[in-house]
Design a protein around this nucleic acid. Structure first.
Lengths: 223, 223
DNA sequence: GCGTTACATGTCACTAAATGACATTGTAAA
DNA sequence: TTTACAATGTCATTTAGTGACATGTAACGC
C-alpha cells in the first residue's frame, strides 16, 4: 500500500473515532487523548493530523462530499442531473463502510444547532466541496476556473446541497423521518436546479468552434 | 449607558484590536494575552467574550453584515433591490467608525487563502448573516421562517454576497483595484438577483387576502 | 442619602490543547 | 543488506482556555 494512502486511512480512522466520541459524550467532554487512544495512536500523532480536535471530523465530511464530487465528474454531457442521480446515487451503489460513514455524518449534522464547533468543521468542508464544484462546473461548461460566474454558481449550488443535507439530516434524526433515497435525490436535484446560476444541470452540447472540427483539445488550450 | 450595550462595545473593541494584530503579525504569532493587553482588559476577560482567539474577529464581520441586514429590513415592498442599494448604500451613508471597520474587514477577507482559521470565523459570520436573511426574505414574501424555500433562498443569496465580498476584497487589496461603491452595488445586486431562488428582489405587492381588506396584520398573525 | 443586589471584571491556580525536539520504527528502494 | 526517508512515539514545553473566588461598580428599593 502506498504511503500517502496509508496516511489517508489513518486520518479517516481517527476521524471516525472522533465523530463517534463526539456523538457519545459531546465535543467538550471528549479530549484529544481519548480520540487518539480510541484509534490506537499516540496523542502526538493526532495533533500531526489535525490542527484542532473539532477539525478531526472534517475528513469524514470531506469523504462524503468527495464521493459526491466523483459522481459529478463522471457526468456525461448529454445527461440531465436527475438522470445522473437516479443512475449513480443509491444505497446499493455504496460500500458498507461508506454507508456507515454517511450515517455518522447525518447524526453529526443533526447536532449543528447544539455544537457551534461542529458547524465550523462542517462549513469548512462545504468550502472544500465548493472548490470541487468550481472544477466540475467549469469543466462541464468549458469555462475557466477563475471565472466569477463559475465561482458564483458553485457557491450557490453548494449552499443548496448544504441546506438539503442539513434539512434531511435533522428530519431523519430528530423527527425520525425516513426519507427514501429516491426522494432525497429528487429533492437535491430540484434544489440544485433552482440554486444554479448557470445552466449546467441540463445536457450541454460541446461548444461548436468556428474554425475547427475537433474542438475539445483546443478548448482546453484556450483556458 | 445600558449594561448590555457596554458589553457589546467591549466586544467590538476587542474584535478590532484582534483584527489589527492578526493583520500585523498573523494569527499564529498573536496571543490572547496580546489582544487583551491591547484592548486594556484582563486576559480572562477575553476568554469570557470569545471561545477562541480566531473567533474574536467575528463581531467585526457580524457588525458589517448586521448593518447590511438593517438596510434590507427597511426595504419598502414597492422598491427593487437596485434602487434600495442606490439609495441606502454608500460611503457617505456611513459613520467614520463603520467605514474604518469595513476596511479592516476587507483586509481580513483578502487573507482568507493564507489563514484557514480566519475562514472559519468568516464562514460562521456568513451563517449568522444567512439567519438574518431568512427573516428578511420570509417577511418580504409573507412566508413562514421555517419554510424550506425561504431557507434555500437565504442560503444561496448569502453565498452570492459572500463571493462578491471575497472577490472585491481580494481585488482591492491584492491587485489594488479601486472599485467604486456604485460598481460594487451593481455587482452585488446582480449577483443576488441571479442567486435568489425566490422573487424577493423585485417589488412585491402585499398579498391580497380573500376575506379581508386590511391584510398586513392578519398576515403577521398567520405566520 | 444608604444598603442591597446583580453583574462585569480581575486574580490566580489549573486543565487541556497544541507544538518542538529528538529517538525509534517500519517500509521502500538501491 | 544497507541506506534513506517518512511516520510514529516519547517527553518536555508552550499556549489556549476554564474554574473558583475576590473585587469593583452601576442600577434599584428604601
Amino acid at each position: 500500500m502506498s504511503r500517502s494512502l496509508a496516511r489517508e486511512n489513518t486520518r479517516l480512522d481517527l476521524s471516525r473515532h472522533a465523530a463517534r466520541l463526539f456523538l457519545e459524550r459531546g465535543i467538550a467532554d471528549t479530549s484529544g487523548d481519548q480520540i487518539a487512544a480510541a484509534a490506537g495512536v499516540a496523542t502526538r500523532t493526532l495533533w500531526r493530523y489535525f490542527r484542532s480536535k473539532e477539525s478531526a471530523v472534517e475528513p469524514l465530511f470531506a469523504q462524503s462530499s468527495l464521493r459526491f464530487a466523483a459522481v459529478l465528474r463522471r457526468w456525461p454531457r448529454e445527461v440531465a442531473i436527475e438522470d445522473l442521480f437516479h443512475a449513480s446515487l443509491g444505497p446499493d451503489k455504496q460500500a458498507p463502510q461508506d454507508l456507515a460513514d454517511d450515517i455518522l455524518v447525518v447524526r453529526l449534522l443533526a447536532r449543528l444547532a447544539d455544537e457551534p464547533a461542529l458547524r465550523t468543521a462542517w462549513l469548512m468542508s462545504c468550502h472544500l466541496g465548493e472548490e470541487h464544484l468550481i472544477e466540475i462546473i467549469a469543466e462541464r461548461l468549458d469555462r475557466p476556473r477563475g471565472d466569477f460566474e463559475v465561482r458564483l454558481c458553485a457557491a450557490t449550488v453548494m449552499a443548496a446541497i448544504r441546506i438539503v443535507d442539513e434539512t434531511v439530516s435533522l428530519a431523519a434524526v430528530k423527527h425520525g423521518l425516513k426519507t427514501t433515497t429516491a426522494e432525497v435525490n429528487e429533492h437535491l436535484a430540484q434544489a440544485i436546479r433552482r440554486a444554479s446560476t448557470l445552466p449546467f444541470c441540463d445536457p450541454v452540447t460541446p461548444r461548436i468552434w468556428p474554425d475547427e472540427k475537433h474542438a475539445p483539445s483546443s478548448a482546453k488550450a484556450a483556458q
